[in-house]
């Protein structure tokens, strides 16, 4: 392994000071991506600044909405009852991410900042309307998660900024969400496709229609994307089999996947058609309609 210095700040302020003053410095959270990159010589770094000992970055708080500190591990997210009950898509996303060993150290902030097109927490957070709180030496700023990703491993983060955490709103009753990770093997694999849905229905009585819809797709574009056209199509409609099928067709047109070792583009498009409907169904089941 390439030699590097390792710094362990205990406050955000200290971390931002270090990243601005040190030469060729990068933040490290759980390290399960960056240590692999260093070992494969895909990254050359002289100073790693650990975010693991900063208390301000940890924890889940539920009140006017949900706050998830960027340093929260996937295991901690998996253990949260509030997330299981009210932000179910995120529980789905974390459940099959890596292995137990990876989930025990890897953080949600790391998963998002690494910005892989296949990031398992990205689609769930997109449909859950997550906002990202970014801290820099000159202050803080909020960015919608949809505006955070620029491309593979690229985000709007300046090299001297870090993500403090994610804020998710409270959703009305009759809301359900889900994420489907399409893989050959449940654990330890990157998705061939990831589809998340959040649906909020009117009253929940017979003939109820969709009040708000969010659909997000992973591995169909250079970054995780929202399927805006599909979302617009769903609003105001009862979610019948026909409507869900048509939603799948629209989403497939919004998807621009590539051929890769995990799957061919045509296959991914076909699976978008199937999985969008399935994700919506799962979301509906969770709202107890």
């Amino acid at each position: 392994m390439r030699r590097f210095e390792y710094h362990k700040p205990e406050t955000i302020k200290e971390a931002l000071g270090l990243v601005t003053s040190l030469n060729n410095a990068r933040f490290i959270a759980g390290g399960t991506d960056i240590l692999v990159a260093l070992r494969q010589k895909k990254a050359e770094i002289d100073n790693l600044i650990s975010l693991r000992n900063i208390g301000e970055l940890k924890g889940i708080e539920y009140g006017d909405g949900l706050w998830i500190g960027s340093g929260t591990t996937h295991t901690e997210i998996l253990k949260s009852r509030v997330i299981l009950e009210h932000y179910t898509a995120l529980n789905d996303g974390v459940k099959n991410l890596g292995s137990r060993q990876i989930r025990n150290v890897a953080t949600i902030g790391g998963n998002i900042c690494n910005a892989a097109p296949s990031a398992d927490t990205a689609c769930p957070l997109l449909v859950l309307d997550a906002k990202v709180l970014i801290a820099g030496i000159n202050g803080e700023r909020w960015v919608d998660l949809d505006g955070f990703f620029l491309g593979p491993n690229k985000t709007v983060l300046d090299k001297h900024e870090l993500v403090k955490g994610f804020s998710l709103p409270l959703f009305p009753k009759n809301t359900g969400s889900s994420y489907i990770k399409h893989t050959r093997r449940a654990a330890m694999d990157l998705p061939i496709l990831g589809i998340a849905a959040r649906i909020t229905m009117d009253d929940g009585k017979e003939g109820a229609t969709c009040r708000e819809a969010r659909i997000a797709m992973g591995v169909v574009a250079p970054r995780p994307i929202r399927a805006y056209e599909t979302e617009r199509f769903l609003v105001g409609k009862p979610l019948t089999e026909d409507v869900m099928e048509e939603a799948g067709n629209i989403a497939a047109r919004e998807a621009t996947p590539r051929d890769s070792i995990r799957g061919q583009a045509w296959y991914r498009k076909e699976m978008v058609k199937v999985l969008v409907g399935r994700a919506i169904k799962n979301a509906m089941e969770r709202m107890g309609l």
Binding site: Y6, K8, G31, L35, R100, I102, N104, V105
Partner: peptide, 13 residues
Amino acid sequence: NEAINACLYPIME
């Protein structure tokens, strides 16, 4: 009390 991969664990942590 948590299982981790020692190959990805910085000694400094």
